[in-house]
Design a protein around this nucleic acid. Structure first.
Length: 424
RNA sequence: GGAGAGGUGGCAGAGUGGUCGAAUGCAGUAGUCUUGAAAACUACCGUGCCGCAAGGUACCGUGGGUUCGAAUCCCACCCUCUCCGCCA
């Protein structure tokens, strides 16, 4: 959520920065301000009435204890009670409407977020390594490689679930497990993360906290009780671990990682240049979540991105970093870097990580605070990034390290995790 | 799933209709004392909202209700614990 005080004080600035995203959320600001006005005047009126009621009620108590007749006062207070109820209802309506609107308004992009209307305006920030070259053969794609080596089976996935689900088999399953282990070890041992293993079914509060609700309910798998959802990313359970807490502040940055299954409906995405493992309804991902002091978040986004990059560097995979422009940035984010790994068989870059700074937007939604030096409670900043998504990493790995005979020569970092140097 | 008990401030734990935002203890902060520390003593010590401020107001699991007045009474829901059942 945006800060209502900031909206009140600089409405034009808010609108202007929201406009940079495209969409029409900026138009809601006017109504938010109207609600705010109504809410506050109603609040004041209500409080004055309550004050009067409290005073008179105490009076009644006193009179009764002294055996005096308080009937007149009681009817008077009853009248005040009715007024309080009436004023309270309109105030609450304004309050609810205001919250409803605020929940629909996306975060404002950071001031140095590049302005643009869609992904074509995303600047490339840097690249690492080079596109893999192949001696004497044409690289093929992961579907062919995986099929030949029996690493995964889409038909089985469809049989026991539906399209968009896959069964990893044999060495393919083992490779997936090796990768998860490698990633968690990297982040916990070298980057100072604490590992957690959270539920993948979470309640609505969590989904509001990180910003999936109310706008993106249709993107998620709901549970039949209508109160729980399968998580689309570990960002949801992990960030919400800190919901409604007051952090010490000396522990900043709080760095937490988790490997979880992620579930996405991907409605409308079927068959659209998403062959193979590239877009699944269920996939694994190692997520990195940071809770930091507001002054740290800008720098921390760079650190977080570097931590995710380290994955690809260690595995020797060529990638590029692009920054999302104002028109392409996610709902809750102020600034985002995408890491795209090169997949030779696809002949394109695949997004394996999205690293974002959310500022205080999620923290305000979930009341995530810390005590500052003056003992005042202030909102933390939150960040997260994939470190990394598994299927596309898997694709890049197979396609990059394929050999002429269709076998895979694994990068050294994986040998001990996989228990071998090659898949053939 | 069945039966019972219970959800109060960072923690422990009083409070069963009014003077209770809430006793007390512990923890924490500041100070006195001390060469220093400890102990002792003194003061402070929950969160949100409205307000320039003074101050006001709300919050005792959540949501309703009764009442002039609710932490306290009633209803529903959620959660925790114990026992039974079931199960990895």
């Amino acid at each position: 959520m945006l800060d209502i005080r900031q909206i009140r004080e600089e409405p034009e600035l808010c609108q202007q920065r929201l406009k940079a995203r495209g969409g029409d959320a900026w138009q809601l600001i006017t109504e938010v301000l109207a609600c705010d006005e109504q809410r506050r005047s109603g609040e004041t009126e209500k409080q004055e009435l309550q004050q009067e009621r409290n005073r008179l009620s105490k009076e009644i108590g006193k009179m009764r204890s002294q055996g005096e007749d308080s009937a007149d006062l009681e009817t008077q207070v009853r009248g005040i009670g009715e007024k309080i109820k009436a004023v309270g209802e309109t105030t609450e309506a304004a309050d609810n409407r205001q919250r409803e609107l605020l929940l629909q308004i996306p975060n404002v992009p950071h001031e140095n977020c590049p302005v643009g209307s869609d992904e074509t305006a995303n600047p490339e920030i840097r690249t690492w390594g080079e596109k893999a070259t192949f001696d004497g053969f044409e690289p093929t794609d992961h579907l062919t490689l995986g099929g030949k080596l029996a690493l995964f089976d889409f038909e089985l996935g469809a049989k026991i679930s539906s399209s968009g689900f896959v069964v990893y088999t044999g060495a393919g399953a083992r490779l997936q497990r090796a990768l998860i282990q490698f990633l968690l070890d990297l982040h916990t041992r070298e980057h100072g993360y604490t590992e957690v293993n959270p539920p993948v079914v979470v309640n609505r509060d969590c989904m509001f906290g990180t910003g999936q609700l109310p706008k993106f309910e249709d993107d998620m798998y709901g549970i039949e009780d209508n109160a729980h959802f399968l998580i689309p990313t570990a960002e949801v359970p992990v960030t919400n671990l800190f919901r409604d807490t007051i952090q010490k502040g000396d522990d900043f940055p709080v760095k937490t990682t988790a490997a979880t299954h992620c579930f996405r409906r991907e409605a409308g995405a079927a068959g659209r240049e998403n062959r193979g493992l590239i877009r699944m309804h269920q996939f694994d991902k190692v997520e990195l979540v940071n809770v930091v002091h507001p002054d740290q978040s800008v720098d921390q986004l760079e650190t977080l991105t570097n931590e995710a990059e380290k994955v690809l560097q260690t595995l020797g995979l060529h990638y590029r970093i692009i920054e999302l422009c104002t028109g392409d940035i996610g709902f809750s984010a102020t600034k985002t870097y995408d890491i795209e790994v090169w997949a030779p068989g696809q002949n394109e870059y695949l997004e394996v990580s999205s690293c974002s700074n959310f500022g205080d937007y999620q923290a305000r939604r979930m009341k995530l605070r810390f005590k500052d030096e003056d003992g005042k409670n202030r909102l933390c900043h939150t960040l997260n990034g994939s470190g990394t998504a598994l299927p596309r990493l898997y694709v890049a790995l197979l396609e990059t390290y394929q050999q002429a005979d269709g076998s895979i020569r694994l990068p050294e970092a994986l040998h001990s995790y996989f228990g071998g140097e090659e898949i053939r």
